[in-house]
């Protein structure tokens, strides 16, 4: 076991944060230049999207221990809100995107009471919510949601603007989790994840803390959905509420390590590249492999890459978050 003085820890913390913020800075410059340099916008967009999704999933799953199996519900709500506002109400995306974030938060508020259920019931309701929203969007009148054919908003939007909006949301999400690890709320959440009852007995308002995490998580996921609609210009109920979106989010976050800041980022970067390079060739095999990876991760590396590193080599904690 290692022993550290407070001085060492303060220094290590400074190094950690300098490294991390430096990395974010590099990413912003690099990604920001992609549209200008005519890079592969789709690939970089999907990297940003999935890092944000995995990070926002991490806020609820990694920091509080809840697994919303219907996570795609927030994303889908965001997608639809943005698309309906832009293509039917005809407002600017700059208003539609914040509204899509708001829609996600509202749905999260509506289902906030499920947080007190926990365990089996929470899992069931959350999964069912995504299934039912998908059906409602598909069956609703076509002049509202476009029915099963979906909506097209391409002629109202500029792709590059969507790209930069995603970059902004990505940075905001990363800043939020970074703040969360250092903040008192973050400590409360991790205590709840480790042992909710003990945290309660130590004076933490479990329900309220969880609610904050839940809303934050929903906010970023629904923003992701809204911006995805902006960037791609089209949507339909099958893809907007696709169970694979939940699956990918879970896998990317878990592969890196839930409950760490860097884990979901690293997990996503590795797996999105692999996804783009290999799995794209075999669309059917793709979801089989996703399922297989979830199973293997759960059975053999539940803490993910970063989490396992931290567990095996406690000294790593000084350098990674």
């Amino acid at each position: 076991m290692s022993s550290l003085t407070s001085m060492d820890e303060a220094k290590a913390s400074r190094i950690r944060h300098t490294l991390w913020f430096g990395l974010i800075g590099v990413v912003v410059l690099w990604f920001g230049s992609i549209p200008i340099l005519d890079g592969n916008q789709s690939l970089y967009f999907s990297l940003m999207l999935w890092v944000t999704m995995a990070t926002s999933f991490n806020i609820i799953a990694g920091f509080t221990g809840y697994m919303p199996f219907g996570f795609v519900a927030f994303y889908g709500m965001g997608t639809y809100t943005a698309a309906i506002l832009v293509s039917i109400v005809k407002v600017s995306p700059y208003i539609a995107i914040p509204a899509s974030g708001l829609a996600g938060v509202l749905i999260a508020l509506l289902f906030a009471p499920t947080l007190r259920l926990g365990g089996i019931y929470f899992a069931i309701v959350s999964l069912s919510l995504a299934v039912i929203l998908q059906r409602i969007m598909g069956l609703a009148p076509e002049d509202i949601t476009g029915g099963s054919g979906g909506l097209n908003l391409g002629q109202h939007t500029v792709r590059e603007q969507g790209f930069y909006a995603m970059l902004i949301v990505l940075v905001a999400a990363l800043a939020t989790v970074t703040w969360l690890t250092r903040s008192r709320l973050g400590k409360a959440l991790r205590a709840i994840r480790d042992d909710a009852q003990a945290a309660d007995a130590m004076g933490i308002n479990v329900q309220r803390s969880r609610l904050y995490a839940w809303l934050l998580s929903a906010l970023f996921a629904s923003l992701c959905g809204g911006i995805q609609a902006w960037f791609t210009g089209a949507l339909d109920p099958v893809t907007a509420f696709d169970v694979l979106i939940t699956a990918k989010t879970v896998i990317y976050a878990m592969a890196g390590g839930l409950g760490t800041v860097t884990g979901p980022v690293i997990g996503t970067v590795i797996l999105v590249w692999v996804d783009e390079l290999i799995w794209r060739q075999f669309p059917v095999l793709n979801s089989f492999l996703l399922g297989l990876i979830i199973a293997l991760l759960i059975l053999f590396m539940p803490r993910g890459i970063i989490g396992t590193l931290m567990q095996k080599y406690p000294r790593c904690r000084r350098l990674i978050m």
Partner: peptide, 17 residues
């Protein structure tokens, strides 16, 4: 508990595929 949900979630994806 959570792990078992996730595991079966993975199994369901594999079966669909």
């Amino acid at each position: 508990e959570t792990s078992s949900f996730l595991l079966m979630f993975g199994v369901s994806l594999m079966l669909i595929a």
